[in-house]
Design a protein around this nucleic acid. Structure first.
Lengths: 204, 204
DNA sequence: ACTTTGACTAATATATTAAAAAAGTCAGAA
DNA sequence: TTCTGACTTTTTTAATATATTAGTCAAAGT
């Protein structure tokens, strides 16, 4: 069992390398198999189809993301600083795995029902993480609001919205450069500062 | 001259009807000409090509939008209320002219250089409008910040980002229904409240 | 001169099909 | 239980013919 899981992980990691470099659409099961020096049926022994492998990849990336978020999370810090920290982590993953978003060539993998469900679940996990941040800040008396789940959703959607706006400014499928990401990060931090101040209890 | 301009306006209004109902890509110059009971070359007498007509349409819609914004703008109101008001207007236009965004079939009209330039100019006008709102609120002592142009840009991008997030939740090119827009409007208002509070001078 | 048009051409999109590539399967070997 | 070579099926791409649509022009109406 443990050996089997290890092989599964290896396949996922091989897939991640290809996906994050060439995009999901431009990566074939053969590519991945060749990279790992195994045959294609071996891949299909661990994953029933390509979609499952993609789901596995996405799960892995999100798990790594959440793990790092939790690892770097310091409850004693101010909300603002915690949010700054999460923004940095979020954007580093965003850049590293940007190509995962590019699915050109594939028949709308992100419109697939199972995929949508998975992504929704993962996004919900992220919302819960942010809700916890705000909830603790509330308990510490830093901020004040009736519904922190609601606030977390609003904050996260605003943040992601800003991200999209910054990416849209680039050409269609151009990779975001460091400069663009820095600008984006700054905007996200500015918004976070105003946002937390808008929820704060004390006079500024 | 005035007669010529009037005809131009009529063509634009005819085009708007078609565009906002079927989208730019699914509307032919013939369609527009037939609607107005004129020949196609008549259209080309007033507009050198389809692209110019589209630009004319977009200019007209933005002009109407800005006119209504200015008309409903009450400087004596609180920033928050002014923002609420602009959100309502913004979203009413967003819904009414949603199909203008759909350019399927056309060879990337929004990637065209002249079009990009025009859209950037119009978006900048909107930024200026919002900057003025924040600037006046600052003069009134409601809010405080060094760079109001910067704040306006951040606010507007967050707002537009939220819009995109809400629209993405729907299927690809599905038209946004009333319920979705209401939800979106509520989120925008919630963000605006927190945002203005985050810039406010006084203790809450 | 200013505006309009029927009849045209040129460019573009769509539909059709053939070829290539990739997904996915299976009997059997290690 | 894990893996593979050889296979089938499905999907994508490329090529080409067809149909639509953008755009032009000489000439006519106002």
């Amino acid at each position: 069992m443990i050996v089997a899981d290890k092989k599964r992980e290896q396949i996922i990691e091989g897939a991640i390398k290809r996906f994050s470099h060439f995009g999901i659409g431009k990566t074939t099961m053969n590519d991945i198999a060749e990279d790992l020096s195994v045959s294609k049926p071996s891949l299909y022994y661990y994953f029933p189809d390509k979609k499952s492998l993609i789901v596995g990849v996405i799960e892995k990336v999100f798990t790594d993301y959440f793990d790092l978020l939790k690892k770097k999370y310091n409850p004693d810090d101010t909300v603002e600083n915690i949010l700054f920290q999460t923004i940095e982590i979020r954007n580093s993953f965003f850049m590293k795995y940007f190509m995962l978003r590019i699915s050109e060539g594939l028949p709308d993998i992100f419109n697939d029902d199972a995929m949508k469900k998975k992504l929704t679940a993962l996004k919900d996990s992220e919302k819960v993480f942010y809700a916890d941040i705000f909830e603790r800040a509330k308990e510490k008396g830093e901020i004040k609001h009736e519904n922190m789940a609601h606030i977390a959703e609003l904050y996260l959607e605003s943040l992601m919205g800003l991200t999209n706006m910054c990416i849209m400014e680039l050409g269609k499928d151009l990779l975001p450069d460091k400069k663009t990401v820095n600008k984006m990060t700054q905007k996200q931090k500015d918004l976070s500062s105003i946002f937390t101040r808008g929820l704060s209890v004390n006079k500024h």
